[in-house]
């Protein structure tokens, strides 16, 4: 088991009170598994990604544990977490196109970063990994500003995985790209996993159809909680949670991604995470909602590897 998250609770401290962005999330990630993480905007996807590598100043863990390869991650101890970052857990950020210092040539930038982490550059390995994502070695002698946005993003993909991390978090890496480039990036990420550059991966996106192409497992989140998690095919073909079904219905045809169709086709909006109501958080929008939904539905394993949090599933 590569990653084990159990009952993780992460809140944002704000002036109005705690925003419960992650409110008891548990899941496992096997070695070599790619987990697609989907859900409406604001459901806590990025919060989960950040919690696993670097929490920002306003985030607090209020409960739960995270273990990577059997070792507990000190996610709220910035200093100790540093040992894990880059080497064991790495990140391709949403802002990958602007993630490189514009005034350093790539070669020097990579060398300085690796040296600062006590690692050395293996030029042959670096160039072969760049070739893997279609970047010529000449890129090393350019400044980031001399590269196109797509090239910069691919360079960040190479850099982030240079130390062969166990877990890679890819947050919305395809959102800003056109459809054909999205496919190329998704293929490159699959290649990273298949070449053993990364062991397992969490692929965060709005795009259920694209996730279906690359993920082994899909996890659907709703308002800071897990709604459903199952093998990708099962989620797409036999979803059990009403929210997942509505998500799929809002896509015209599974497996085809129509331009700019996003996961926003469901009437209503999720509850505020500042002070969420008791019971199932999807209740206000759920067509099946009933009496029992006033209590929190537990996450149950309906079939092997198929977890659902719904009384009526």
């Amino acid at each position: 088991m590569s990653l084990q998250v159990s009952d993780l609770r992460v809140h944002y401290r704000t002036l109005k009170g705690d925003v419960r962005a992650l409110d008891g999330v548990s899941f496992d990630l096997a070695d070599g598994e790619i987990l697609g993480l989907v859900g409406e905007s604001g459901c806590g996807k990025s919060t989960l990604g950040k919690a696993l590598i670097r929490m920002d100043g306003r985030m607090r863990r209020t409960g739960g544990t995270v273990a990577l390869d059997g070792e507990e991650l000190p996610i709220d101890d910035d200093r100790r977490m540093n040992d894990f970052r880059f080497r064991r857990v790495s990140l391709i950020p949403q802002y990958a196109m602007s993630a490189l210092n514009p005034t350093r040539k790539i070669r020097r930038l990579v060398a300085e970063l690796l040296r600062s982490r006590g690692a050395a550059v293996d030029p042959a390995e670096l160039e072969s990994r760049m070739a893997h994502v279609g970047l010529p070695p000449a890129v090393l002698d350019r400044y980031p500003i001399e590269l196109s946005g797509g090239m910069r993003q691919r360079m960040v993909m190479v850099i982030s995985t240079l130390l062969d991390p166990s877990l890679l978090i890819a947050d919305e890496v395809t959102s800003a790209l056109d459809v054909s480039t999205q496919k190329a990036v998704a293929r490159a990420l699959l290649g990273f996993r298949d070449s053993g550059y990364v062991k397992s991966m969490i692929f965060i996106t709005h795009d259920l159809a694209l996730t279906h192409h690359i993920a082994d497992t899909i996890m659907v989140m709703y308002a800071g909680r897990l709604a459903e998690k199952a093998p990708a095919d099962v989620i797409v073909k036999a979803p059990r949670h009403p929210y997942t079904r509505l998500l799929l219905d809002s896509l015209p045809e599974v497996g085809v991604r129509y331009a700019d169709r996003r996961l926003d086709g469901i009437a209503g909006s999720p509850p505020s995470l500042l002070d969420p109501p008791a019971g199932c958080r999807f209740r206000d929008r759920c067509p099946l909602a009933g009496e029992e939904c006033g209590e929190d539905p537990p996450v149950t394993e309906l079939a092997p590897d198929h977890h659902v949090a719904c009384w009526k599933a």
Binding site: F86, E112, R117
Partner: peptide, 20 residues
């Protein structure tokens, strides 16, 4: 800036980030 955030996420020491 984004590059500073990225470097922190990769655990780069603040010395390097401050230099940049």
């Amino acid at each position: 800036s984004d590059y500073a955030n990225y470097l922190s996420a990769l655990g780069a020491p603040s010395r390097l980030i401050r230099r940049y």
